[in-house]
Lab assay of single mutants.
Amino acid sequence: LHIEINVNGLRIELHNVSEELAERIREILEKVDDREEARRLAEELIK
């Protein structure tokens, strides 16, 4: 499954994740104000 999410102008592509996991990642990242911090957090979440 390939999912693309957009959060605060940051486009993140997720591969091989469930829709539920992608939604949780999006919800978490929406709470982060700083774009660079959101990017770093996204990288950690999808490892």
Rank of each mutant, 00 (worst) to 15 (best):
L1N: 13
L1G: 12
L1V: 12
L1T: 12
L1S: 12
H2E: 06
H2D: 10
H2N: 10
H2C: 11
I3S: 04
I3F: 12
I3P: 04
I3V: 11
I3M: 10
I3E: 03
E4W: 08
E4T: 15
E4S: 14
E4H: 10
E4Q: 12
E4N: 11
E4P: 02
I5G: 02
I5F: 05
I5K: 00
N6P: 01
N6Q: 09
N6T: 11
N6W: 08
N6D: 14
N6V: 14
N6S: 07
V7H: 08
V7M: 07
V7A: 06
V7R: 02
V7S: 06
V7N: 05
V7L: 08
V7W: 09
V7G: 04
N8I: 03
N8S: 06
N8L: 02
N8T: 03
G9F: 01
G9R: 01
G9M: 01
G9C: 02
G9V: 01
L10I: 15
L10M: 13
L10R: 02
L10A: 04
L10C: 06
L10H: 15
R11T: 15
R11M: 14
R11A: 11
R11I: 15
R11F: 13
R11Y: 13
R11E: 06
I12L: 12
I12Y: 10
I12M: 08
I12R: 00
E13C: 11
E13M: 13
E13F: 14
E13W: 15
E13G: 03
E13L: 13
L14M: 09
L14T: 01
L14D: 00
L14C: 03
L14N: 00
H15A: 06
H15D: 06
H15N: 08
H15W: 14
H15K: 07
H15L: 08
H15V: 10
H15I: 12
N16Y: 07
N16F: 09
N16H: 08
N16R: 04
N16T: 04
N16V: 06
V17A: 11
V17N: 02
V17S: 03
V17W: 08
V17Q: 04
V17L: 10
V17F: 07
V17R: 02
V17D: 02
S18V: 04
S18M: 03
S18D: 08
S18Y: 04
S18G: 08
S18H: 06
S18R: 04
S18I: 03
E19P: 14
E19Y: 14
E19D: 08
E19W: 15
E19C: 08
E20Y: 12
E20G: 08
E20N: 06
E20M: 08
E20Q: 10
E20R: 07
E20P: 04
L21F: 13
L21P: 00
L21H: 05
L21V: 14
L21R: 03
L21G: 02
L21W: 09
A22S: 05
A22H: 04
A22F: 10
A22E: 03
A22Q: 05
A22C: 03
A22T: 04
A22L: 11
E23R: 14
E23H: 12
E23C: 06
E23G: 10
E23Y: 14
R24H: 07
R24N: 05
R24W: 10
R24F: 07
R24I: 08
R24A: 11
I25Y: 02
I25K: 00
I25S: 00
I25N: 00
I25A: 02
R26Q: 06
R26D: 00
E27G: 08
E27M: 13
E27P: 01
E27V: 10
E27S: 11
E27A: 13
I28E: 04
I28V: 09
I28M: 11
I28G: 01
I28W: 05
I28C: 02
L29G: 00
L29R: 00
L29D: 00
L29S: 01
L29E: 00
L29N: 01
L29Y: 13
L29C: 00
L29Q: 01
E30F: 11
E30C: 07
E30D: 09
E30Y: 11
E30H: 10
E30N: 12
K31P: 02
K31M: 12
K31L: 12
K31E: 11
K31Q: 13
K31H: 13
K31S: 14
K31N: 14
K31C: 07
V32P: 02
V32A: 09
V32L: 09
V32I: 14
V32D: 03
V32F: 11
D33T: 15
D33Y: 15
D33E: 15
D33R: 13
D33S: 14
D33W: 13
D33I: 15
D33G: 13
D33C: 03
D33H: 15
D34V: 04
D34L: 04
D34W: 04
D34Y: 03
D34S: 08
D34H: 04
R35M: 15
R35Q: 14
R35G: 10
R35H: 15
R35N: 11
R35E: 13
E36Q: 09
E36N: 10
E36G: 07
E36T: 08
E36W: 07
E37R: 07
E37M: 10
E37F: 10
E37W: 10
E37I: 09
E37N: 05
A38Q: 08
A38C: 03
A38W: 10
A38H: 02
A38V: 10
A38K: 02
R39T: 08
R39D: 02
R39K: 12
R39N: 05
R39C: 07
R39A: 11
R39H: 06
R39M: 14
R40F: 05
R40H: 07
R40I: 08
R40Y: 05
R40D: 03
R40P: 00
R40M: 08
L41K: 06
L41R: 07
L41T: 04
L41H: 03
L41E: 03
L41P: 00
L41I: 13
A42W: 09
A42M: 15
A42R: 01
A42E: 01
A42S: 05
A42F: 14
A42C: 03
E43M: 14
E43V: 10
E43C: 13
E43N: 09
E43T: 09
E43W: 14
E44Y: 10
E44H: 08
E44M: 10
E44N: 07
E44W: 13
L45T: 05
L45E: 05
L45W: 06
L45I: 13
L45M: 11
L45C: 04
L45N: 01
L45Y: 08
I46T: 06
I46N: 02
I46H: 02
I46Q: 05
I46M: 10
I46W: 08
K47L: 14
K47Q: 14
K47N: 14
K47A: 14
K47F: 12
K47M: 12
